[in-house]
């Protein structure tokens, strides 16, 4: 079947984004990237994807707004509380046996998942021996993660999630509220390294005991998922843990054999020793 002109334009636009700025969205799952590009085109005021491509090539200022359309930043503190409960009950007992720990939140977006882990580790008495890596490709999101400031009207949900996750303290111990914002305590960032890192084009940078990579792989096509999961596998220590999003399953991955199920329903896996 002949490729539709619009699909050809999208392919060329993604190629331009890659060649000019080294952001590689070429193998993201095509259906939702197309949807988001349509939104970007309409709201950035371009008639066609070719016109958007022309703008992008000549005006670097358009890069950041475009990236904000292309990446999705839905997140919550203790999103899917049962996941964090499983980390607490099933994974933490293993982690306790290590004198020092490295944890990687891959695709941390605006930081909610990171703060969830730091708070959980503090509650479990593991924070002091842990180094957290929080990475994403979106600079704006990383800056927000580093600031740790969220709208106060989200706190009720966060508090509820934290409680359901088996939280042992009060969430209000970790933030101060003012002018409609909740600002998370800077002590929570003491053991955190924030960094720009892409699961698509960057390499292994440390040996991890736990990688939490949630709701990032769903945006990739199968081949790219295998690539990213290979990278995560190579980043994990022997018997290291991997947590995926609640609808992401190892089932269709090439690397499935390298992992065993640790908590099946919560998509928590352990790297096999073989």
């Amino acid at each position: 079947m002949l490729e539709k002109v619009e699909d050809l334009e999208i392919r060329l636009l993604l190629e331009a984004l890659y060649q000019r700025y080294h952001y590689d969205f070429r193998n993201y799952a095509q259906a939702s990237i197309k949807r988001r590009l349509k939104q970007a085109r309409e709201q950035m005021g371009f008639r066609s994807f070719s016109a958007l491509q022309d703008g992008l090539l000549h005006r670097p200022a358009l890069l950041s707004p475009l990236l904000n359309y292309l990446t999705v930043h839905v997140s919550e503190l203790f999103r899917d509380p049962s996941y964090f409960r499983a980390i607490r009950e099933k994974v933490v007992p293993h982690l306790r046996t290590y004198p020092s720990l490295k944890i990687w939140i891959a695709g941390c977006s605006t930081g909610e998942e990171l703060y969830s882990f730091v708070i959980l580790f503090r509650e479990e008495g593991l924070e002091q021996r842990t180094l957290f890596y929080a990475t994403d490709i979106n600079q704006d999101a990383l800056a927000k993660a580093e600031a740790g400031i969220y709208d106060l009207d989200r706190i009720q949900l966060f508090t509820e999630n934290h409680r359901k996750s088996g939280g042992k303290s009060s969430l209000s111990d970790y933030y101060s509220a003012a002018y409609g914002k909740a600002s998370f305590d800077k002590s929570l960032r003491k053991h955190v390294v924030f960094s720009d890192h892409s699961l698509v084009s960057d390499a292994v940078f440390a040996e991890m005991h736990l990688v939490s990579c949630r709701n990032v792989l769903i945006y990739f096509d199968r081949g790219l998922q295998d690539r990213a999961l290979g990278l995560i596998k190579d980043s994990l220590a022997r018997k290291g843990f991997l947590g995926l999003g609640s609808k992401e399953s190892m089932r269709f991955f090439q690397h499935a054999d390298s992992f065993t199920e640790c908590v099946r329903d919560e998509k928590i896996y352990q790297k096999s020793s073989k």
Binding site: A29, Q30, A31, S32, V74, I218, K247
Partner: peptide
């Protein structure tokens, strides 16, 4: 809480888009 999409290669995708 997830959108369901069909990919051109006839597999299904989920997303958290707005």
């Amino acid at each position: 809480d997830y959108h369901l999409l069909v990919e051109r290669n006839k597999c299904l995708s989920l997303s958290n888009d707005d």
